[in-house]
Structures are given as C-alpha cells and as structure tokens.
Design a protein around this nucleic acid. Structure first.
Lengths: 177, 177
DNA sequence: AGTCAAACGGACTACCGAGTCCGCTTACGC
DNA sequence: GCGTAAGCGGACTCGGTAGTCCGTTTGACT
C-alpha cells in the first residue's frame, strides 16, 4: 500500500489537510492553486495525486462522511427510534456546522464516495422513526435529509440551532402537534 | 425618458427577456454570451445597456421583486394576520418556483435593488402574524424568510409544496401544536 | 434623399482556473 | 558514497468569461 516515498507521503497529508480547510471555508469553488499554496507545495503535486479537482474533493468528503457514518451506526444501535433520529440529526449538525463549506462539496459530489452507504443508514434511521410514529410519514427519508441540510445551509453561523429546531418541529407528525 | 432609438428599445426588451429566461434556469452563473445569443444580439450590445453583468442581474431581479412586492401589499391589506402570512408565502412560492434560478440571483444580488422595501413589507407581514400568535415568536422575521427560501431552494421540482409544508408547520407556535 | 449621431456586433484584450510538461532535486536501496 | 527512479514545482497550454474598441449600419429628423 504505502510504497510512497516518505516526502510524498508527507505532502499527501499536507494536501489533504489543506484541502479540507480550504473547502470547508470556500466550498467547491475553492481553487486548487489556493490549496497547493496553503499546503506549501506546487499545484502540480496536487494533480499528481488527484488527477482532477473533483477527485481531491471526493477524498476530502470521504473522510468527513466516515465520521458521519459512525454516528449513524451509533444511532441505529439505540433502542428508541425517535430518540435515535433526533439525536443523530443534532449530532451530525454539530459536526457538519464546524466545516460549513463541506456541505456544498458533499452535494456537488453527487454523493459519489462512500456516501451511498451513509445514505442507506440514514434511510433506515428515518424510516424506523417514521414507523415508530416519531416523524411524519408523508415524506421519503431522502427528503427529510435534504430539508434538514437546507435549513442548516441557510442558517447564519450562530443560529443554526433555531433553524434546525423549526424543521424538526415541522417533521413531527400531525398527531403529536 | 425614452429617448432610446426604436431598435435600441426593442433590443433592450429582448435582452431583459432573454436574461430572465437564462438566469431563471442557470442562476447567476449564466454567461452574458449565452444571454446575448438567446436575445439575438451581440454581447457588446448587452454591455452597452448594462455596464456589468451584475447590473443586468439587478435589472432582472428588480422586475421579479416588483411582483413580489405587490403580492406583499395585498397580504398586508388582508384582515387576518395568520391567513395573510401563510397565503403570502404560498403565493410567493408559487411565483418564485416558476423561475428557480432567480432565487440564487436574488441572494447573489445582496438584496441590492428595490428589495429593501420588499424586506420591510415582509418583516411587517411576519411580525404581525407573530403578534397574532400565528407564528412562533422566537425567530426574527428575516429568519422566517431565509428558512422558507432554504426549503424551497432545496426541494426537487415537483415537491416543493411538501417541503414548504414542513417548514410552515414548524413555524407555528408550540401552543397550536 | 441626405445627414449624422445613435446603435450595432465582431474582434480583441485581460484574467482566471484546470490540467500538462519537463528539467531539476532528493529519498532510498545498494 | 552513488545511481536511479520517484517526486517535485515553475512555466506552460487551453478554454471559458467579463468587459472594451472601432469600423459599419441604421433610425430619425429635415
């Protein structure tokens, strides 16, 4: 696996770190030059590891998606479906809101990396909550996801909790309103 | 006012119409060339009337904002604050969703054109509904606006009504839930 | 019809970002 | 130490877009 020369390995990590920072701030419009500069390498070095800017973005997003996936797995382990759902969402938001620009990147990626798996987990969390009557049933799990992402995305930095709260209230079934 | 030569006047209208169509589809990333082509004029003609792409976008957005403003005024005339708010929102959504890309343009414009006035009207509609107990009070009128815009923005073409419904439910005060 | 300023649009410049090339450098096995 | 392939990065190409210039056309007024 790691047949990479020591300096190459070091640069690869620097690039990934820099890319994460930069994408997290500027979203998918961040330029490769900016990332290379921040990493302290020439931009050709970036393109050598990631033939395409998109490839680099996938790599960055994938890391992030991994963290979310472990959160999702924890949620599925919880016995109370409603609790699991609302807890997961708040946790994921807490995580995602520290790297705002990445949201746009995830969307832009068209769910390419290991995200399919994450999507599946989320679908299960949501539909379980729906079956348990904790979430309204007239929406597909995917829609629940985009609705939440949209609210977080639009929220000013210090207020995303209120925005999220509105959507979560709206997601409760009419019965519990 | 209209000291414009007849052909110039005609071209100006063509450009505005084309720009509306194109911005409505591609959002602010639409290129001036594309607009000029669609209008059947050289792109220099566009730049003669609108020194800057942003100026063109402002002009297009302004038209759209005017329509929204008249809706807002109608809503303020209605006696029932809750009814007025929910009606206005649904009406505005109905209007805006026919030109999806324009939403991004409005945002990009940083509310430049006559939008300040519209914002004021919307603030009044919202806070009136809040005072009447039809909308939760823990949000500023502006936030109500962005929350709604976010949901519409994220919704797939045929489903924005459900998305909007979730947010509107979430906006109702705890009392009526 | 004749004049002329207004308007036109093709061609040009300037810039920016993605992706490639190639001569130079350096880690690492011997 | 030393030879060599892996790695490096500055300088390039290429494509796309905003904005300008200028020689030509055309509407309007007499």
């Amino acid at each position: 696996m790691s047949t990479l020369r020591a300096d190459a390995q070091r640069n690869l990590e620097r690039v990934l770190d820099a890319a994460t920072e930069v994408f997290a701030v500027s979203g998918p419009d961040a330029s490769v030059d900016e990332i290379a500069r921040r990493a302290g390498v020439g931009h050709a070095t970036v393109f050598r590891r990631f033939p395409t800017k998109a490839d680099l973005m996938y790599a960055v997003v994938e890391r992030h998606v991994d963290e979310l996936r472990s959160l999702a797995e924890k949620a599925l382990a919880s016995p109370d479906p409603g609790e699991a759902f609302f807890g997961f969402v708040r946790g994921a938001a807490e995580l995602g809101m520290t790297l705002p620009g990445l949201q746009k990147c995830v969307v832009e990626c068209g769910e390419k990396p290991g995200a399919a798996e994450l999507e599946q987990l989320m679908d299960r969390i949501v539909s379980r909550a729906q079956r348990a009557g904790a979430v309204r049933r007239d929406l597909k799990p995917r829609d629940v996801g985009s609705l939440i992402r949209a609210a977080l995305f639009a929220a000013p930095p210090e207020q995303w909790r209120s925005y999220l709260d509105v959507v979560l209230e709206g997601l409760k079934p009419a019965a519990s309103r």
